[in-house]
Write a protein that binds this DNA or RNA. Structure first.
Lengths: 154, 154
DNA sequence: ATTTATGCAAAAACTTTGCATCCAG
DNA sequence: CTGGATGCAAAGTTTTTGCATAAAT
């Protein structure tokens, strides 16, 4: 009775660029659009991307605008965005915890040579072969990270 | 040209219980069996499990033996064990970085209600459907975490 | 005016580094 | 002795908390 049909297409993140849209976007998700939050969202939702809390902090505080934000606020705001469903937190590996603008069901490829992270379509995962699942358990989510290396043409 | 055949059976971790075996086990893997390392290994390889650095520290320093170990040594030792291939570090989710005694290829089920983590057989993952992979890239590893909830019988 | 929410300094938790000490040759 | 390895205090990072302030009712 367990199974996730993972046959969607890869959908892009919700992107918003101008101040106006960012405010409505936040409001629509029950988030009061304060100065700090708009500043953080501006950088985060500029494009489909995976950023660390630290990268966001740097960008917000070096974009030339008056608005600077503390580290605590960046963490608390990103956590708020996650809990309101407009961001997803991803552990690409134990050393890289990132915030992903794409909250749709998808997986990740990490190129270990370039450090590049790409979203990939959810692939079909045959869970019927799974032996370690209790019948009383329901699948909530499936996180898949594929680590690759660029061929050195050997 | 990418493909990992994931049809092995679920193999248990290498377990060692007595002082003697732990020393040889460490030596065999190029790790000098010092007091601190044996203490840490004793608790880690006691059974097939997933433990945080902090949990190991607690156990080592409260088992009644004379040997206590600093936090730094626990971190450095676990990192050493990982680099020597006798432990695997797993990001079950962004909040849970754990050390896994099972270094064989396998995946994880996290029961979000009980917090229990179980190893599962590597399942067949059809990577031929993958569209986001460059032909110049080779798969290095595949990490899969399935989050489940206990049915509330609703 | 009272209540609720917000931002951040400070605290806590986590991880790494640099060096004094130990140990093998 | 000497050179490399080891353990850990201290430093550096990351994340959370508690509270002063701000906004809303």
């Amino acid at each position: 009775m367990h199974g996730i049909e993972a046959t969607h297409h890869l959908r892009p993140a919700t992107l918003v660029s101008d101040q106006e849209s960012i405010c409505s976007f936040l409001s629509e998700h029950g988030i009061k659009p304060t100065r700090q939050r708009v500043a953080i969202a501006t950088h985060m939702f500029e494009k489909d991307q995976h950023l660390s809390a630290d990268a966001i902090l740097d960008r917000v505080n070096s974009d030339g605008s008056i608005t600077t934000v503390s580290k605590a606020t960046v963490y608390n705001t990103l956590k708020l965005f996650v809990s309101e469903g407009i961001l997803r937190e991803v552990a690409i590996d134990p050393q890289r915890i990132l915030f992903d603008t794409n909250t749709h069901h998808h997986h990740h490829v990490l190129n270990m040579d370039t450090g590049e992270i790409r979203d990939i379509n959810p692939v079909d995962i045959d869970l019927t072969k799974l032996t370690g699942l209790n019948s009383s358990e329901t699948i909530d989510s499936v996180d898949l990270v594929i680590k690759v290396r660029s061929n050195k043409d050997q």
